[in-house]
Design a protein around this nucleic acid. Structure first.
Lengths: 189, 189, 189, 189
DNA sequence: TATGAATGAGGATTCATTCAT
DNA sequence: CATGAATGAATCCTCATTCAT
């Protein structure tokens, strides 16, 4: 039942955005009565939050293999592998992603997004800390913050805005940015 | 009167975001009757658009001197000067900026934001084209896109999220990113 | 519920006419919330349309027996029987009729009224065509149009304006008009 | 000034009907300020009433010659002359007539219309009274009422609905109706 | 548990009217 | 007189939410 609601909600969100996604419409789309929504969710925003949260879980599963592989690679290759995987995952969910990023007021989904950001930050932080000696400077937090913001934003906008940039070029640039931000000098790319 | 409406609208937006900003509330806050709103604006979104547009004009004025100075500097210093000015301008308007960026569905403000982005892109494009010979690669469009997205996002998030990063460090990192993305090798920073 | 809304709507219409009949007022009069109106009707005009439509159905039922009887009578008696029945039916609903005819802009109810007129026209046409040989002239359409307009208007105004004319005299005059328009010479009245 | 307002009001009424004819729009169309309307008319309905009233005066002037001529003719010819003149006058003002008859709730214009009806009734009454001896029955009031309603309605609908009936046929039928209603037997037509 | 009819506060917008200038 | 900015009550309608069944 939660399943049907979430699926229908995502569909409605994709089709029409947050404002047009009335609870009645989600219920109808789910083949469920409006009342039933409130047996599983306290209010409308909770449904959106659940949708966001599931999207994020999907991403996590989708990039898990890449993360495992990255763990046994050198930074440049590792970054490329991970970024490529994230990009693929985002492309897969472009429609819902657009609905969530561009059509839902950001506050509604901050909790959920904070969690992604936190996971991403952990990975980056750990990776940087491991190579602490080679960093441009010792402030790992600072570099982590910038990398997370940078990466997340560029990937999302690349998927949503489809700028006229080839995938490999885009990934190369992003990798270049990250590595140059983190490390003192050119790492073999 | 337009003044009062826009001011009140901005205040309401800052306090409660787009969804809560009803026309009646804006009117009340402005000490004006609901009908008066519609003598000056065709609908609610036009009010929000005007607020956004004024914010953008403020930015433009605020950074104009920096842009003039940047025109007679070398890239690294130029970038620093401009970024610093933009950062100051954003700090000045942090409250309204937060309301607009985080609490208004992106679609509602796309026209206004596209215009800023376009102006920014022009400046960056021109600057890159001028130093075309020294670029990492010839695709100026591509570099422009990345720089614009990158810069805008990092600056806005720095202002809105206040990460524990010193202003000079943040500006240094951002400048570093931009220059390394654009130019083949280290420019004297 | 539809019942309550329609009843209340008719009452409000009778009391105050179309312009004053706000949806909120109809809802209040029906002891129902404004929202409920829109579960059963797409908009305000649909309510008025339903009221009109029911009025018309009432008429249809009320005059059905007379029509059956008329089918087995000669023209003069047939006309008298039908007109008398219609007059009674109109008298029954005088209040609502007044509201609809005099206080609703004609355009709002044209669909509904066209349907009555069409039914009436069918009956008249058929009746004339049956006696085609005796007609003043062969243009049945033309006579039908005039009879329908004539009859409908006179009956409605008689009911709404209560001119100082006895019922039997009024019916006699109307019958006289119709028969003389249709047939070449005096039919035994 | 009254002139401009009335002219503009008529234009707006013709174009869009009563509901859409806002005072602001009439003022704009008249090139006059909304405030000025209220120097000459107590409220919106007074403007509509004045428009109606002028339309009626126009009719009166337009048919005056026909009435004079009718005074020196025998009933059948007299009726034809008058009806023809009225029909012409209505055709001239068809657009405004439609706006007034079909799109203004009847109550708004009853005063004005009562006056026309009264004038018409006077003429008919006088004409019948003059030939009292030949009437089908002595109740002149009764016949007057029916003729007035009958004539007015048929002429207006003929103009507004353009039924597929030739002008001369329509006039012949209407004359036939009136004369047969009034007089005992066929008058030479 | 599931329903879905019912809710009602609230939304954006209109427009006849006023009144200070 | 003429103006027109300002009014604000009122309009139609929406939709997140509730609750008796």
């Amino acid at each position: 039942m939660v399943e049907r609601i979430v699926t229908a909600g995502a569909r409605v969100l994709e089709d029409s955005g947050y404002q047009e996604a009335s609870t009645n419409r989600i219920a109808r789309e789910a083949g469920v009565s409006p009342g039933s929504l409130y047996q599983y969710f306290p209010d409308k925003d909770a449904i959106v939050a659940e949708i966001t949260s599931r999207l994020i879980d999907d991403f996590a599963s989708a990039i898990a293999p890449a993360l495992r592989q990255a763990a046994i690679e050198q930074p440049p290759a590792a970054a490329l592998v991970v970024l490529g995987a994230v990009l693929d995952a985002l492309q897969q969910q472009a429609a819902l992603l657009r609905a969530l990023v561009d059509r839902v007021p950001a506050v509604e989904q901050q909790e959920a997004l904070q969690s992604v950001r936190a996971r991403l930050a952990d990975i980056v932080y750990h990776s940087l800390a491991t190579n602490r000696g080679a960093l441009r400077h010792a402030d790992v937090e600072r570099t982590t913050w910038t990398i997370v913001e940078l990466t997340q934003h560029l990937l999302v906008r690349y998927v949503l805005d489809s700028p006229p940039i080839a995938r490999e070029d885009f990934l190369a640039d992003t990798t270049h940015l990250i590595l140059h931000l983190a490390y003192d000098r050119d790492v073999a790319e």
